[in-house]
Design a protein around this nucleic acid. Structure first.
Length: 1047
RNA sequence: GGGUCAGUAGCUCAGAUGGUUAGAGCGCGUGCCUUAUAAGCACGAGGUGGGAGGUUCAAUUCCUCCCUGACCCA
């Protein structure tokens, strides 16, 4: 590796070499082993599921993880990185169902649970190769060999331990709740699963007439609104708001209706109000069952009262189907309403609902509406689009359904979760307080059970006591299972056959404390509980690795996409808060979505999915990584545009490469070799050297601050700016001549040492972000096969930061820009030397600064002299402008007048301000800090101003200047010839010229200088056609030129 | 319906604890510089700072409402 750079660098190829080097060198292992275990930085890997292909967003998340870990490593921390795989749960089952063509739970049972679970197990590493390839190719350093895998017995055992902890604390209970239920999964979904599946849905919005059959309102119909007509056959009651007013109306068409007074707008025809009544008066009113398919046990079909009835939409009268809505269920309990279930768990209408039997619940909407219309029960129908939860895997609408389910009572400690969350450093900050904070505030109990197959079995066994009541006991370890099971060795013949999954575990029978046989409950648990258990389960804690776990909890750092807010971020936090009373992580970076360049979501159907492998093949992982981090704040949505990769490669990476290449070319030319032994103290070096070192250390200071705050985007941008603007385009460019022809040994040493040091430090800052090229360049520079990732950062050195010098150079840069601007406007090429540059100064500090940078400016803009005009000179005209920050608070409403007054003050007042510090502007007393002084004009000169700097240029030419101009033009032509003729920089050449007399004589007069600059040995003038001349031109005069190598 | 974030040049993004003249890069036009550079520099074109109110001497920045987008929740 420690070899010179090839002439052409193709980053993807270079990266492959580096990958091989890392592998042979075992760099990753070394970067951990070499560190002191006393200084650990803990990272948790959020486990992906390898049953799908990795995408570009995985590269983003993994780049963030990798760069933080590499950064901390280079700060001297020991950063263990254990990979993990999420291998259980519905997502896995769904993929297998797709492959096997299975559509329902019944099919799975037919297929066989053993076989099905085996298929699941086989499928979870379906794309393992691709995942490993991505991980390796992008340079994500993580220990894949010792990855934790959630389906392993040891992992499950740790999860069981946690479940038992919850159970013993009384925080696991069986409940009956209305849950979002997927008819294809035949399982309720957890709220964080639901969160992932919202889709727009076009639904009917219908107003239905319910016939009143008794009481004072008998002639009237209730006007009832619903958006779920399919629940109407399950209707058990109606609800009104007892606090609202209702009205009885007669419509133009003759309908006699009751509805909320506040909702009269839904009557889109003429009507008259017959009577106004209170909501409470309606309670108990009986009506005729709308669709008579199900017979009630007990009382039904009357009006109930509920506060949840709103006046925001509908008719103010709500249809109640206790099995299909949370509010409905609650009011059902209160009024002992029958729980009709016209639709089964499979989402289909049951036998007894004859016209719709077997029909999917959503599909039945239209049929039901048609029947209502036929019966004259439909008042009005519209369609509307709203966001509705769908199954995140099956993409079918969910139904809210009364279901048995096991819950973790997280609400009981939500206060503690909120408290602990306040100590977590979220990045971006608002995610913690906003999104995650809100989520915690609105916390609901976590439904952790799933009526499924491939998952961690809920280790609860049950029996009915004498009274018929269900009693539950929980198992918290394999050992406990062995001890308590009656038939352990029947189910598990030997140690190798131990498999805690269904269906084996279901065959384990246990005796209760009073000797009754117990069967396991059927459910498995939510896979988010698996991944949320990884802090301890990855180490098989508490069964082993106690110390290891103690040292590695909580994580110093995690990072995932914002879709994990309700997923992993939550499950880690909920489990960690209860078990350890500490947050599971202390710092995290949340990354946003990656959209295509038009801001659209990437999807297969749109064909706008970016293939990460392709990008890395074309541009390399370094460029991709740098782009993903630097182009926009990582918390924002990112619009992925391939063209931006090209820009990063050209502007940033090529510049860095060329800077290093420059160093190699010229250090070789002058035989410089970097060595620690012959270093010169920074303070003794040249001004430009001290400047770039000062800039470097200022950068380092800021870089460390930002990185320590996890503001990685800003850090990357600063590094890029430094590399391009300061190092390459100013320091190196400015010093090109010097590097070629140093003024003595000291100058040589100082320059090359400085360049070497700055590049090394720059590469270190790049290394965490783009680990390949930085390593290659680093090893080339050091000449050793010791990776940059084994090096450590040195802290910035406050002693070499020279603010004054940085300001001076900034001033120089500004003056140069202004001078160029004048040249352009007056059509004066930079190659044409000019006589004089004038710069007015307002005080001694400015004057001193200017003197320090004089030579730099003059050389840069090719001007002979820089003359400073002092403040008291007559030829400069000073002006004052108001400093609003100062005069604002001081003068309040009079600001505008003060502004005018200041604009009007003349040179005597300004003089007074400068000497006494105070003066009068009109009727106002102002002082020095109320104004900014600037020079606007210099009498009789061409001036240019920007940011309070003014310069003037003497544009008069004389013969001497013109001649010099010609010489520089000539040298330029020779160099162009050399370059286009592919001469080596070290080639000594002969010049052959056929030119008019004026040019010839100018060349002769400046021969020595020209020969030196162009590395030429001689010039001859001939007009024979013995050479293949190239025609050229200077100031309108044409001449011919040819160059050949000596010998 | 509610929440979080975002809306600044054709595109990608900065910045401003409120200060009068809002900046870069890419792209476009013109010119220049350079034997490290597919680079760089200058000039030019390009902005009603999503919209409407309000607070203030002063709002792109603070407040309210609305619109649009992304994500989340009901």
């Amino acid at each position: 590796m420690a070899k010179k750079l090839p002439d052409n660098i193709f980053l993807p190829e270079l990266e492959k070499e580096i990958l091989e080097f890392w592998q042979k060198d075992e760099t990753f292992r070394k970067s951990i082993d070499e560190k002191d275990s006393g200084k650990a930085f803990t990272f948790y890997e959020g486990p992906p599921t390898a049953n799908g292909l990795p995408g570009i967003h995985h590269v983003l998340a993994r780049t963030i993880k990798d760069l933080v870990c590499r950064y901390k490593t280079m700060q001297g921390y020991k950063v263990e990185r254990k990979a993990g795989w999420d291998t259980q749960g519905l997502p896995v089952e769904v993929e297998v169902e797709k492959t096997l063509g299975i559509k329902s739970k019944a099919d799975i049972e037919k297929f066989g649970e053993v076989k099905f679970n085996q298929e699941c197990k086989n499928s979870v590493f379906k794309y393992l190769k691709e995942w490993e390839e991505l991980t390796s190719r992008m340079g994500y350093w993580i220990d894949l060999e010792n990855a934790y895998i959630t389906f392993h017995n040891e992992y499950i055992e740790s999860v069981w331990w946690a479940l038992k902890k919850f159970f013993d604390a009384g925080l696991i209970y069986k409940g009956y709740k209305i849950l979002p239920f997927c008819p294809l999964c035949e399982s309720p979904l957890s709220s964080h699963e639901v969160a992932q599946g919202y889709q727009d849905l076009k639904d009917p919005s219908v107003y239905v007439k319910f016939r009143i059959i008794s009481g004072p309102h008998e002639d009237y119909d209730f006007l009832v609104w619903t958006t779920t007509p399919w629940t109407l056959p399950s209707n058990a009651a109606l609800a009104v708001n007892p606090k609202d007013k209702y009205v009885k109306i007669t419509s133009a068409k003759g309908d006699k209706l009751i509805l909320a007074k506040a909702r009269l707008e839904v009557i889109n025809e003429e009507y008259s109000i017959d009577e106004e009544i209170d909501g409470t008066e309606l309670e108990g009113t009986e009506y005729e069952q709308l669709l008579k398919y199900l017979k009630p046990e007990g009382k039904a079909f009357f009006v109930t009262a509920g506060d949840f009835v709103t006046m925001e939409d509908g008719s103010g009268i709500v249809h109640i189907a206790p099995a299909f809505g949370e509010d409905d269920y609650q009011i059902g309990l209160k009024y002992s309403l029958p729980v009709f279930k016209a639709v089964g768990k499979d989402g289909k209408f049951i036998e007894s609902v004859t016209p719709f039997k077997g029909m999917n619940f959503k599909d039945a909407d239209a049929e039901i509406i048609a029947e209502l219309k036929k019966d004259g029960r439909l008042y009005r129908k519209e369609m509307f689009v709203h966001s509705y939860p769908h199954c995140w895997r099956h993409h079918v609408p969910l139904m809210y359904y009364a279901t048995d389910s096991w819950f973790v009572n997280t609400t009981s400690y939500k206060g503690r979760m909120i408290e602990l969350n306040n100590s977590i450093n979220w990045n971006p900050e608002t995610f913690g307080t906003g999104r995650f904070g809100n989520w915690l505030e609105e916390n609901r109990d976590w439904a952790i059970s799933r009526n499924r197959f491939w998952g961690t079995p809920l280790p609860i066994w049950t029996y009915n006591d004498e009274s018929g009541k269900e009693i539950y006991e929980i198992i918290g370890s394999i050992e406990e299972l062995k001890q308590r099971a009656e038939n352990f060795s029947d189910v598990y013949k030997d140690d190798d056959s131990l498999d805690l999954h269904k269906p084996y575990i279901d065959n384990i029978v246990m005796r209760s404390k009073d000797g009754t046989p117990m069967k396991r409950v059927k459910e498995v648990i939510d896979c988010w509980f698996d991944s949320g258990s990884m802090p301890f389960a990855q180490h098989h804690y508490p069964f082993e690795n106690k110390e290891l776990f103690d040292k590695n909890y909580p994580a110093d750092f995690i990072s995932e996409g914002l879709d994990q807010t309700r997923g992993w971020f939550y499950s880690l936090h909920a489990i960690g808060t209860f078990l350890f009373d500490r947050p599971a992580y202390q710092n995290l970076i949340v990354n946003g979505m990656i959209l295509d360049k038009n801001g659209k979501k990437m999807s297969k159907s749109l064909g706008n999915v970016v293939n990460p492998f392709e990008m890395m093949k074309k541009y390399g992982a370094d460029v991709l990584r740098w782009y993903l981090i630097s182009s926009s704040p990582v918390g924002n949505s990112k619009l992925f545009d391939e063209e931006d990769l090209v820009e990063i490669q050209n502007k940033f990476f090529d510049t860095v490469i060329n800077t290093v290449r420059f160093y190699f070319i010229y250090s070789e030319l002058v035989d410089f070799e970097y060595g620690e032994d012959k270093l010169t103290d920074v303070h003794e070096r040249e001004t430009t050297d001290r400047w770039i070192i000062s800039k470097l250390n200022s950068l380092k200071k800021e870089y460390f601050e930002l990185m320590n705050e996890y503001d990685i985007t800003k850090a990357a941008r600063l590094v890029q700016e430094f590399a391009i603007d300061e190092l390459s385009n100013w320091y190196v460019r400015r010093n090109r001549k010097r590097f070629r022809n140093p003024a003595g040994q000291k100058d040589l040493l100082h320059g090359y040492q400085t360049l070497h040091e700055v590049i090394i430090e720059l590469l270190k800052m790049i290394a965490p972000f783009s680990p390949f090229l930085s390593d290659r360049l680093y090893m080339s520079l050091t000449g050793e096969d010791e990776s940059i990732h084994l090096s450590e950062f040195t802290n910035f050195d406050q002693n070499v930061i020279d603010d004054r010098l940085e300001k001076e150079m900034h001033l120089a840069q500004n003056i140069v820009y202004l001078a160029r601007s004048v040249r352009v406007k007056n059509n004066l090429k930079v190659r044409q030397p000019l006589r004089q540059l004038l710069v007015p100064v307002l005080n001694d500090t400015e004057k001193e600064m200017l003197l320090n940078i004089k030579s730099i400016v003059l050389e840069e803009v090719n001007i002979k002299e820089l003359n400073i005009i002092e403040g008291d000179s007559d030829i400069i005209v000073k002006k004052a402008k108001p400093n609003f920050k100062s005069i604002g608070p001081k003068f309040g409403k009079d600001v505008k007048e003060v502004q005018k007054a200041i604009a009007a003050i003349g040179s005597s007042e300004i003089r007074e301000l400068e000497t006494k510090g105070v003066t009068k502007a009109g009727k106002f007393d102002i002082s020095r800090e109320d104004v900014e002084l600037f020079t606007e004009n210099i009498e009789g000169w061409i001036v240019e101003s920007h940011d309070d700097i003014t310069i003037a240029l003497d544009t008069q030419l004389d013969d001497g200047l013109i001649e010099e101009g010609i010489v520089r033009e000539f040298i330029n032509r020779v160099q162009n010839f050399r370059r286009s003729g592919n001469f080596e920089i070290t080639d000594v050449v002969r010049l052959h010229i056929d030119a008019p007399e004026t040019i010839k004589s100018t060349i002769s007069k400046n021969l020595e200088y020209i020969l030196k600059e162009t590395m030429s040995s001689s010039v001859d003038y001939s007009n024979e056609n013995e050479f293949d001349y190239l025609e050229s031109e200077i100031n309108g005069q044409t001449f011919k030129i040819f160059i050949n190598k000596e010998n």
